[in-house]
Each structure stands twice: as C-alpha cells, then as structure tokens.
Design a protein around this nucleic acid. Sequence first.
DNA 1: ACACCATAAATTGTATACAAAACTTAGGCG
DNA 2: CGCCTAAGTTTTGTATACAATTTATGGTGT
Lengths: 238, 238
Amino acid sequence: MNKNASAVPPEKDEVIYAHLHAAICDSKLLPGTRLPEDTLSASFGVSRTVVRKVLQRLACEGLVAMRPNRGAQVAEPSVNEARDIFATRRILECGALAEMQNPIPAAKLESLRALVEAEDAAQMSGNRVDAIRLSGEFHIELAALTGNLVLTEMVAKLVARSSLIIATYGSPIAVVCRHSEHEQIIDLLARSDAAGAAAWMQEHLLTIERGLRWEHPASDLQEVLRGVMANARGGKAD
Amino acid sequence: MNKNASAVPPEKDEVIYAHLHAAICDSKLLPGTRLPEDTLSASFGVSRTVVRKVLQRLACEGLVAMRPNRGAQVAEPSVNEARDIFATRRILECGALAEMQNPIPAAKLESLRALVEAEDAAQMSGNRVDAIRLSGEFHIELAALTGNLVLTEMVAKLVARSSLIIATYGSPIAVVCRHSEHEQIIDLLARSDAAGAAAWMQEHLLTIERGLRWEHPASDLQEVLRGVMANARGGKAD
DNA sequence: ACACCATAAATTGTATACAAAACTTAGGCG
DNA sequence: CGCCTAAGTTTTGTATACAATTTATGGTGT
C-alpha cells in the first residue's frame, strides 16, 4: 500500500530518512548526539545535499534540533516539552477514541491484539527496543482506526518524540506500557464503549508519564557536570 | 522575545518562508499554483538551494505538495483531507479549552478581545484577507492560553491548512467565523466555564465546516474538465 | 484531422566548490 | 597558574554545474 510500485527507483532520501528515524526512535542515536553532515553523507554514500534534506525533515518533526551554523543533533526534549507532548497525546488520542462510535471491524481488533501480543513477547524476552517500538505502533494503529489521516500522522509524530522522551527521562524499568492496559483498551473498544476506552487511555498515558524520572535526566547530567567544571575551576578537571 | 537580537543577520530563508507562508494563507497563491524553483529563486534573489529548503519546510507542514521530479505546488486539500483537518481541530482545540481550569489572566482575555475587535473591523470593511488571518490568529492565541507550545504549534499548522481549505471550498460569503461566536468563547472563559467554552468551540468549528461548499470546489473543476476532455474525445474540446 | 512518436525545452535531482562561521588548539600575557 | 588571543581545523551556508526526468512541441503516417 505504502510501498513503491515495482519499477520505481527506491528513493534514496526516503531510505536514509527511514534509517535515521528508526535509529533515533530505537535509541541507537541518543539525544544530544551530534549529526555532522559529512559523516552522514559518507556513511550513506550520498552528498550532503541529500543528507540536509533528510535532516530538515527530521527537524520539522522535532526529532532533530538544528541551530544555525551549528549543525544538527538528536533532539533533547526539555522537561516542559516532554510534558507538553504527553498532554497533547492525551487530548489527541483520547479525543480520537471518544469519536469512534461505529463498531470497529473485527479484523482490525484482531490485528491490534496481535500487536499487543508481539509487544508482550518482546517485553518478556527482554527486548526493550522492540517493545517500545511495538507499543508505539499500537498507539498509532489505534489512532488510525478513526480513518483520519491527519490525526494519525500527528499521533505518529508525537509517538516518535515520545521515544526521545523515554530515552532521556525513562527509568530502566517500567517505562513501557503494561501490555494489559493495551489489552483493556481493545476490550472496551470491542464492547463499543468509546467513552470507557478514552478514559482508560487517559489513565494509561498518565501512568507512562508518571513512570518517568524528571529529576535525573541522563543528558542533563552531562550539562550539569560541564557547568560544574566551568564554575569550580579550582577543582580537578581531569 | 522571539525576535532576533540587534546584530544578528535577518536569516534569509526565514524571510522567504514568511513571505511564501503569508502568500499562501492570504490566498495570494491559490491552491494548485505551480512553484518552480527557478522562478522563486529569481524572485527572491537567492539560489535554488535556499528555495528548496523553504519549500521542503512548507511541504512538511502540508501547505505545499511536492511530487518527485515534478516540483512543488500550493497544496490542494482533498475533501477527505479537509474534513480530517477540521475533525482534528475540533479534538485539539476543544480539548485545549476543556483543560483550562485555572482562571485566565485578565490581560490575556483583553488581548483576545482586541483580536476579535480587529477581526470584526476587517470584516465590516470588507477586508476578507485580514479577517481570515485575524480569525486564525484568534484560534492560535486561544490554544496558546494552555501554555502548551507543542499543542499551539499544531493548532497553528492546522489553521494555516484551513486557509487553504477556505480558498478551495469556501463560498464567497460567510466563510469566516461570526465574530460574536469568538466573543462568546471569551465570555465563557472569563466565567471559568471551560466545559462550556469547549462545547461552544465544537459548534463553532462545525458551523465553519458546514459553511463550506463541498460540491463545487474551484480547483476540482479543472480536473473534472480535464477528465471530461480525455474521455469524451468525440466531443468538442474547444 | 487525429493519434503517435521523436526531438527540444524546461524543470528537478544530485554533486561539488568555495565562502563564512564556529570550534579547537597553541601560544603569549597578566 | 589561569585567561585571553590567534592561527588552524572543522563544519555549515550558499551558489553553481551537470545529469536525469518530465513536459512541451513539431512532424509523420494512417
């Protein structure tokens, strides 16, 4: 459906975009990682022109921060930004669920259940990266049930940025959604209890948010240390 | 606050972006208008590199459609996309209003009233472009009351795309919000009746949507004619 | 006269070169 | 000993050249 036809060239920039997007969302590129154009263009075997195009797209989605004359780096969501993102997700995703009055096709519910099962399996086998990715896909597919492409794309972008938040503020344990909560939402939808599903989603997203550690963000530590080193000049910098 | 400091260069691409954005939202560039890179770069006195950067940003926001090897043109929102955009606005903007529990500072309410007044004045004097723009600004400022920057930016992008929808499907009369409805929302907020404001906003957005003419979109006409000409080859094409 | 094909013009895709800015490192001064 | 300054290096910003693709044009055959 979203794949190219047979004879169409593979769209180099799309491939690079997908690679970088995945690398960021899967925490292979941690927040704050610098993304020099030369390095990327050499790695992917293209010119800086193509790399810049991809970086600008990622910047537009909030996954990459670009400062003039200072290059690109993986975005480091601030605490305020993180809270805003989750607040917006609550409004959007709950609103989407609340609007689903028509009975959901059984096939769609089934594929959602399969997604939750895969997520559960990944979590059980300790595959944290897959678990987070599948959890995100669940939220996106849920939004897609509305048939509203604009809304679905917005949720997808917020989910991607949430991966950055988890990478920055997530505690090693219990960051991912408990699969049972996802299952509960499907059950409520199967019962056509849209309001119930929305209410449950509200709690679910709040639960995720509460599981984050706003106090000890990993990357702020570096900034703090740098500030300490700059201030306490009498101390040993080495 | 958001302006550059004194000695900082004016950021050429930002200026070009602002110009194009305004031209599209003010319907100076109608949906479907082709945007050749050469023409733009000549007009603005920069190279295609800068123009492409701006076009990609506009494409990311949905104001411009870029097809591979086929260039950019002002986006022509389909009926489905238009409905999705308004549905998403209902969820986002009503959700934003519903979450405002704290009493709104009087100063902010005052500046909102000023905005409505300016919009009213523009409409009364037949200045349709200003009226639409000020109406959009009202919706954006309303979202900004949440303090949620992520949400505000999303609303701003949806409002911009709504300008395209109005340009495509808007009837010559009665496309803009009745200013009294905007005033009513402010009154409800002043009374701290968040739920009431949200309900009113829901109706308000539905009213706008109902005022559009989905039957006779101006630019679909060309497509229809093209299809007719291609099919009825025996008929008179001239 | 219409459809079809070849050629020409226009437009986009990509790479590269050079200029400008920021970062790094080494040296001198207080 | 630390800070400030300055050349050198790295990295980004922009323009331009060339290749690839699409679109427009004109000619030819039926």
